[in-house]
């Protein structure tokens, strides 16, 4: 554990809490892609199956359970509790275009050809692209509420901090997880355009982020 990794995990936690609290308080999930949230729940589910096979640390176990619970709570709020507010007309990204290549890749490129390892690899690749339905939705509607952009900012910050964590681990413990690093870098690139808009628009006090 290093400071980048801890800060990354905290950013990830903050992002998910921001989204959950936003939906709960406003009693609305307008502007939120339910598809991205289902994909994230699938990411956590397939990655954290090792909860049943290995124990790494109390921190690791607690964080995994919290992430799982919060991602399922988010999906529940969007599709059950506040489904009337769900903007399905703008949440039209074709998820199968992500799932098919990701499933194929996880069978081709993995550390061991075992069910748990293939599912872990699937979760890593899927996380890299899971935000695409959300970014697609913002592009389609041309705007995002500032609280939604704060969510995306913390999610992107988490990714950037994980890259710093990998650089640190590479130099201090010769740790290099090629699958996680390559897909992590790809994932971070998706946020760059958004980061630019966030800094130039949202941080200048706009209530909404309107796309140029």
């Amino acid at each position: 554990m290093n400071v980048f990794r801890l800060a990354g995990d905290v950013s990830h936690l903050v992002a998910i809490i921001i989204l959950l609290v936003k939906i709960w308080r406003s009693k609305s999930c307008a502007g939120i892609s339910g598809k991205s949230q289902v994909l994230f729940a699938l990411v956590f589910t397939t990655r954290y199956l090792d909860l049943f096979t290995v124990f790494i640390s109390a921190y690791n176990t607690i964080m995994k359970v919290v992430f799982l619970a919060m991602s399922y709570a988010t999906v529940y709020l969007i599709y059950m509790r506040f489904r009337n507010m769900y903007d399905s007309e703008n949440d039209t990204f074709r998820v199968e275009f992500l799932l098919v290549p990701v499933i194929g890749l996880s069978f081709l490129e993995n550390y061991a050809f075992t069910p748990l390892e293939i599912l872990w690899t699937f979760s890593i690749f899927l996380e890299a692209v899971a935000i695409m339905p959300q970014l697609f939705m913002i592009t389609k509607t041309g705007e995002a509420e500032s609280i939604t952009t704060h969510y995306l900012f913390f999610l992107g910050l988490y990714r950037a901090l994980y890259i710093a964590n990998w650089v640190w681990r590479y130099h201090t413990e010769e740790f290099f997880d090629q699958i996680a690093v390559v897909s992590g870098v790809v994932q971070t690139i998706f946020y760059c355009d958004f980061f630019y808009l966030y800094v130039t628009r949202v941080l200048r006090g706009k209530a909404k982020m309107i796309l140029p």
Partner: peptide, 10 residues
């Protein structure tokens, strides 16, 4: 630089 298993990151 072999990967250390199990996966210890979130």
């Amino acid at each position: 630089h072999a990967l250390k298993m199990p996966h210890d990151e979130l």
